[in-house]
């Protein structure tokens, strides 16, 4: 029996090794990113492609945008990829970031039951949210300090309403799960278009509000400041940032999901400014 364990140990150790030797000093690039990026499936695609096209290898942890920025602010990641512009600016002001590049955007949609009891269909997003609050129709919030959550809370702030009460439910879970809950409860929620398209066939909620400028959701890549955190893999971080804004990657982003859902989930924005996108 002991021999069997030793054998197992050796096999497992071998299996633990990285699949290939790399020519750079530090091939591992640690990325802190958001769950919506992972849930869409784009992370897996870009990660594999990045590994193929560069000597680097991505190690990505998918958490909420808030958590991803916090990880970066401790120097525990080399690069972050998030979608919460206000928080990102604060992050840069604190000297935690080095380069910040616009990569892509998607947009948010307000979804709800086809019966639409709060009558939000066709309204702009602020009027729609006011109508939901006024009719006390159930609204599911992510409630997990993710980029989507921060985005939604910003929208409420701009309507001048502090959402509270039994109609406002914080799910504290990922986007896919939140959509399922919303469907089950015949409620409203704010979702990124990508996740909604992925889940569309399995849930009974529809897009009620879309293509409104305030609903644009932009993704930036930020390399962690190597002067503040000397341990970070700056070369790897830069390689990943450059990879994301390269023409080939931008084309890959533009085509992602088209085959499966009939429309893209993300829109490449490399080289543009935030103002161009909005």
């Amino acid at each position: 029996m002991i021999r069997a364990f030793v054998l197992l140990l050796i096999c497992a150790l071998v299996a633990c090794d990285p699949p290939a030797q790399r020519s750079v000093d530090r091939p591992e690039v640690l990325l802190a990113t958001t769950t919506s990026f992972q849930d869409s499936g784009l992370l897996d695609v870009l990660s594999a492609d990045f590994q193929k096209r560069t000597p680097y290898r991505l190690r990505a942890t998918a958490v909420g945008t808030g958590a991803a920025l916090a990880i970066g602010a401790r120097g525990d990641a080399d690069v972050v990829f998030v979608h919460a512009p206000n928080e990102e600016l604060a992050y840069m002001q604190q000297g935690n970031g080095d380069r910040r590049l616009l990569v892509m955007h998607n947009d948010f949609v307000l979804v709800g039951p086809p019966a639409d009891p709060a009558h939000v269909r066709g309204k702009n997003v602020f009027d729609a949210l006011r109508a939901i609050a006024a009719s006390q129709a159930t609204f599911i919030s992510r409630g997990d300090k993710s980029g989507t959550d921060i985005f939604e809370k910003n929208l409420w702030k701009q309507t001048g309403i502090a959402p509270a009460g039994s109609w406002y439910v914080e799910a504290a879970t990922g986007m896919g799960q939140t959509l399922t809950i919303t469907s089950e409860k015949r409620a409203y929620t704010l979702s990124d278009r990508g996740t909604f398209l992925v889940r569309q066939g399995q849930i009974e909620v529809q897009i009620l509000v879309q293509r409104d400028p305030p609903l644009i959701n932009v993704y930036h890549v930020i390399t962690v400041n190597p002067r503040k955190f000397p341990k970070v893999n700056a070369a790897g971080a830069n390689a990943f940032a450059d990879y994301l804004v390269s023409a080939e990657t931008q084309r890959l982003i533009a085509s992602f999901g088209v085959e499966k859902y009939g429309e893209p989930l993300f829109f490449p924005d490399a080289g543009k400014s935030d103002a161009d996108v909005r």
Binding site: A15, C16, E28, L30, R59, A60, T61, I71, R74, G75, D76, F229, K231, V232
Partner: peptide, 16 residues
């Protein structure tokens, strides 16, 4: 985590 006591191992997000 890199900021933690075993950060030098660089084990975050690994099988190890």
């Amino acid at each position: 985590w890199r900021s933690g006591p075993f950060g030098g191992l660089d084990w975050y997000c690994t099988r190890q």
